Amino acid sequence: MHQLRIYQIFDHNKAEFHARFRDHVVRIMRRHAFDIAGMWEARGEGGPEFVYLLHWPDEASMAARWADFMADEEWSRIRAETTARHGDLVGRIENRVMCRTPYPASPA
């Protein structure tokens, strides 16, 4: 299964968001066994967005690893420090858990 995450980010502190994600979040997620399949920046109707795709073996693993990540002391400290210094780096968060259909995307 996959999880699609879409974060509203802001033009005025977009560089700080990317620095935090690149320099800290990715490393912490990998420590908690997140499998990051890809990351993109997109432009939605409301402005810039950060989009990433995670691969999970099952829903129980996804829930447990997210709980561990959210409770991670290093992540809590980094989030607090960067928010104090640059303001909120993320607005709206969209989350989609996606399971493959039993048929292929294109006919054989």
Results as ranks from 00 to 15, higher is better:
67 A>R: 10
82 T>V: 13
35 D>A: 12
23 D>M: 06
45 E>W: 03
38 G>T: 07
8 Q>V: 00
29 M>L: 06
75 W>R: 11
60 A>C: 07
29 M>S: 03
102 P>W: 14
3 Q>K: 15
51 V>M: 00
93 I>W: 13
64 A>D: 13
1 M>Y: 14
102 P>M: 06
48 P>F: 04
86 H>Q: 08
10 F>N: 01
14 K>S: 06
3 Q>A: 13
105 A>F: 08
20 R>E: 11
55 H>I: 03
77 R>V: 01
9 I>N: 07
100 R>V: 12
33 A>D: 12
75 W>G: 04
71 A>G: 08
104 P>I: 15
77 R>N: 05
67 A>F: 09
62 M>G: 00
33 A>W: 11
85 R>S: 03
68 D>G: 10
1 M>T: 13
5 R>W: 02
3 Q>I: 01
9 I>Q: 10
58 D>S: 01
49 E>R: 13
82 T>F: 05
63 A>V: 15
95 N>F: 06
51 V>I: 12
98 M>F: 05
80 A>E: 14
85 R>P: 09
29 M>V: 02
26 V>H: 03
41 E>M: 08
55 H>F: 02
2 H>V: 07
1 M>V: 06
8 Q>S: 04
31 R>E: 13
64 A>L: 05
65 R>K: 11
1 M>H: 12
29 M>D: 00
36 I>Q: 00
15 A>M: 08
88 D>G: 12
11 D>H: 12
38 G>S: 08
108 A>V: 11
77 R>S: 02
104 P>A: 14
60 A>L: 08
